[in-house]
Structures are given as C-alpha cells and as structure tokens.
C-alpha cells in the first residue's frame, strides 16, 4: 500500500515539476510548484517524518510560495507570457539542460552515499517536540545558530534597502 501511495505522490510531483518548467503563464507555473511542494510534504509523511511534512507545508507552501505569487501578481505578466524566457533557439537550452541533468544523475548514482542510507523506520515517539528540541539545541546547535544569524542579516538588509530611498 505504501508503494502505491509513493507512486501516486511521486508521479504527481514529477508531473507538476514538469508543469513548472513547461507552462507559459508564470502564475500557472507557480501553481504547479505549489502542487509539487504539497506532494513532497506527502512523501515526507510516507518517510515517517510528519514534523518535516508540516514544516514543508508551513514554510514552502504557506509562506514562500505566497510571496512568489504576491510578486508575480504585482508584475504585469501579460507581456511575459508572450515572450520566451531565454532569447535564441530552444535547442541550445535543451542541450544545456540535458548535459546538466545527466551530470547530476551521474553524480547521484556514482555516489557511495546513496546505497548507505538506511530505510526509514518509524520511531516510537515519531519525533516528539522535546526530542526535536534536544536535537536542535545539542547536536545541531552550530548550524541552527548560523542559520539564525543568516536570517537576521537578511532581515536587517531588507529593512536597510527599503529605507534607503527615504533617506
């Protein structure tokens, strides 16, 4: 049964990811990207990490994509839908993406790490809050703090840039 659900979610995710690239209207692309993110959240649940799934929904679908669409809506997209994203022949871009894609696939499959990942096991607590907190503030304290500082810098930068025009 899990296999069937995985195939369902994965195929929808891949289809919507293709939609992101192939759809001409930027808003439609964004919608496809939202669908893709939701499928990925579903896949996280299949991997027994509901916390990650909820965060995926919360952060990517609930916040980041809203900002994407917010910006797209403010722009005049009628012109953009008529124009091509890249100037020149589409065969060149196709060639580039084929080269890039095959390089990524080769890296992925030649990596020894792929075979070393153990299959996910449902833990007894299923990632309770205290467990998560323990992990974040002991084992992963440094990355956590670094990420916080990066976000703080971004915040300060954003405020600085918006206030620059007003003097």
């Amino acid at each position: 049964m899990e296999q069937a659900f995985f195939l369902l979610f994965a195929s929808i995710a891949v289809a919507s990811a293709c939609g992101v690239v192939l759809l001409k209207n930027p808003v439609h692309s964004a919608v496809a990207l939202i669908a893709c993110f939701i499928q990925i959240a579903a896949l996280y649940i299949l991997l027994h990490s509901p916390f990650l799934a909820a965060v995926q929904l919360f952060v990517y679908v609930g916040a980041i994509m809203v900002l994407f669409i917010f910006v797209i809506m403010m722009l005049e997209i009628r012109q953009a839908t008529l124009e091509r994203f890249l100037p020149g022949s589409k065969y060149i871009s196709l060639a580039f993406s084929v080269v890039l894609g095959s390089a990524m696939l080769w890296l992925l499959f030649s990596s020894p790490l792929l075979s070393q990942i153990p299959p996910p096991t449902p833990s007894a607590t299923q990632g309770s809050v205290s467990e998560l907190g323990q992990a974040l503030f002991t084992q992963y304290l440094l990355p956590f703090e670094v990420v916080s500082i990066v976000l703080l810098v971004a915040l300060v930068g954003a405020i600085f840039m918006t206030h620059k025009g007003n003097g």
Binding site: P50, A53, A54, V61, G62, M73
Partner: peptide, 25 residues
C-alpha cells in the same frame, strides 16, 4: 491522532490564502 497536530493545523490553515489569491487574481 498525529503528534504534530497543532503544527499541521497551522500549516494547513495557511493554505486558505491560495483560494483568495487565485480568486482575486
């Protein structure tokens, strides 16, 4: 009975926004 129930609810309630955005746009 999910153990991230509250987070799930907040996350899903946040999706409510899309109907509004799509409808308006």
């Amino acid at each position: 009975d999910m153990n991230v129930g509250l987070l799930y609810i907040l996350a899903v309630a946040g999706l409510e926004i899309y109907g509004v955005i799509f409808g308006g746009w």
